[in-house]
Design a binder for these strands. Sequence first.
DNA 1: CCCGATAACTCAACTAACTTGAATATTAAA
DNA 2: TTTAATATTCAAGTTAGTTGAGTTATCGGG
Lengths: 390, 390
Amino acid sequence: MFDVRPGTNPDRSRVRNRKAVLGLINSAGQMGRAAVARSLGLSTQAVSNIIAELEVEGLLIERGAQSAGRGLPAVQYGVNPEGGVALGVEIRPDVLLTSLVDLSGKPRATRRQVLDDLSPSRVTVAVLKLRDWMLKECGFTNERLLGAGIVMPGPFGTTGLSGQASDLPGWQTVDVAGLFSQEIGRPVIVSNDANAAAMAERFSVAQGLTDYAFLYFGAGLGLGLVHRCQLVDGAFGNAGEIGHLPVMADAERKPLEQVVSRVSIQSALAANGPLDIEALDRLCKAKDPALMRWLETACDALGQAVGVIENLFDPQTVILGGAMPASILDHLANNTPLPELSVSNRPDAIHPRLQCGTSGRMTATFGAAALILNRAFTPQSTAMWERPPA
Amino acid sequence: MFDVRPGTNPDRSRVRNRKAVLGLINSAGQMGRAAVARSLGLSTQAVSNIIAELEVEGLLIERGAQSAGRGLPAVQYGVNPEGGVALGVEIRPDVLLTSLVDLSGKPRATRRQVLDDLSPSRVTVAVLKLRDWMLKECGFTNERLLGAGIVMPGPFGTTGLSGQASDLPGWQTVDVAGLFSQEIGRPVIVSNDANAAAMAERFSVAQGLTDYAFLYFGAGLGLGLVHRCQLVDGAFGNAGEIGHLPVMADAERKPLEQVVSRVSIQSALAANGPLDIEALDRLCKAKDPALMRWLETACDALGQAVGVIENLFDPQTVILGGAMPASILDHLANNTPLPELSVSNRPDAIHPRLQCGTSGRMTATFGAAALILNRAFTPQSTAMWERPPA
DNA sequence: CCCGATAACTCAACTAACTTGAATATTAAA
DNA sequence: TTTAATATTCAAGTTAGTTGAGTTATCGGG
């Protein structure tokens, strides 16, 4: 499951340091060699060598010198968006979504393909084809592909939450990461939609944050937790199943998902027939009374959930995103009553307690790619989580 | 706050590898050089050098050769309990508790000192004195002291939960870690009681586990989260404030702490006057009716809380511990109804969903020391969580 | 009972990656 | 104009891990 080798040798040191340099420059926008060296606790020379290497490989580009006070102006380097791309794959019961995201976190291509047969073999074939199309369309060679992130409906393995409609038939016993990495020939990371979407925020709203929670509107409602720049996904990859959190709504105790989710909007607005994101956006902007009523109970329930997340996890901020119109997310972020009895209710807070992130249908698909980008920018946590041989 | 240098150089490599070797051998009990090398992905030679070094320093001891099939029997090494000690300090509003814990996680000495003046200066003086006494009593030289863990009532900083009785006056603005590490001249880690107690379990019930949650009975009820062998303590060190989690009890919505905590026992058994752990133990063993009633509602509420923890963090297990008699913790662990709608409700589960850990008054004090032991056994997570210079 | 396969371990030479210190270049402040 | 400060590079030096050959001890098969 975890192929991390806790031991460090020269090779692995270099890999780590390269990631550290890239990640630092990425989150700072641009930096000079000396500044990077100070920040990482390495010698200027070491950083200089690494940066030279990364520049030759096209991962960094020079951005001219910048004078800051006395002394020789430092030559600035920034991450080259063209330096690499990550493939994002989202497998849903009804559809296969893919995207290509460049090193700066910007989506370059997206694909949406309805599949009648979602068997692993058919999906891998489709993904390979889509990868080639998108790479060609964006003018990237195959060598520039850093890896693929795969998003699938959780929970993984058989749990007390299994057997739902969102489960993919025929995938339960498959080693998904192994399958795809064999086919694609690149590193593959598998996760659920909320975790992936949370990672995507590292390239937008959560840039520079180390600890945050991401509430994701997908089929239901999911939670992605980021601690010290790394996903907290649980022992079996199923952390963040917040949909079943009991909240009070209409003087009743209900699962959060039943009050705050697209399904719950749909049932609140049943009279309008099936609604897609654009339709919801229009209704929100028109202040549709039924939607406003839904928003009121949703805000109230969301406030309770945010309180639980804050007190259990103590994040810098909680971010809302996913398959919802930005107008509704905005309303939720701005009108949710946040509990006073919370560790996050701090007078000296720098970040808002609740804010909006990326919205839209493709959020998790981009997030899938972000799993790979994050890997390129973050030295592996090397805590010893491998079991000693029996 | 985090003084981690993400960059790796030969020196830091060695430090990491030493910790990896120690940690691996610690969790396995004993191992040979070759097995360690395989597990860490290092060459036998590298491990051999490191083990030789650790043996000279007294951190490892030879445990004889063990033949396993064909081939030269591997010389086994185990962690030498005498190799080092960690100082655990627990500062409470009413009392100062200290302990000395050896490398195997076994407490060697404990002290309980009532202080009328809890100012930082008085406490540091007292701690230094207690450290010297305990070191002398156990026959350890000062060089063998690995560091000190400090446990204080949370939450840290001013939050929406501040201003409670458990707050320590005069400590809010103090850099506690800096203060103590200056005085003691060793690494210092500061945390809250639940987090520390969770770390202590790595040396008993949670040995070999990578992901677990620990419910700690202290002044209230706290939660310690361990993910990939590392504490998840939140952006400001305040994660795990589970006491305010709303649960249903007696058909009402109440904070968990009001139903499951020592204070709540005390008010349920008000007729008996003030009760200490031993008194509670006697009542439990005598099946006192009032206590049994309390246990019933507590179990019910606990089940709800465990459900939330499981679905949000997906741990391998949830452990109960702290300032309660083992009899009560046992009852809770065995009689709590665990929700079926949980990702932890898996037919193929290896670990019990809920179990007992260390109980007693000193749990968190031992845990404080465990913070340091854990540091000695776990290579620092080197994710890049340092902010780039502004 | 002996011999060969197997595995742990060590020695010595080798290599990769980072560090150090001197030299050079460029800028701002005195 | 001089001086201090800073970035950068060059070249030599250091540390730690790797490699491959050789040694030793055990098991198991003939």
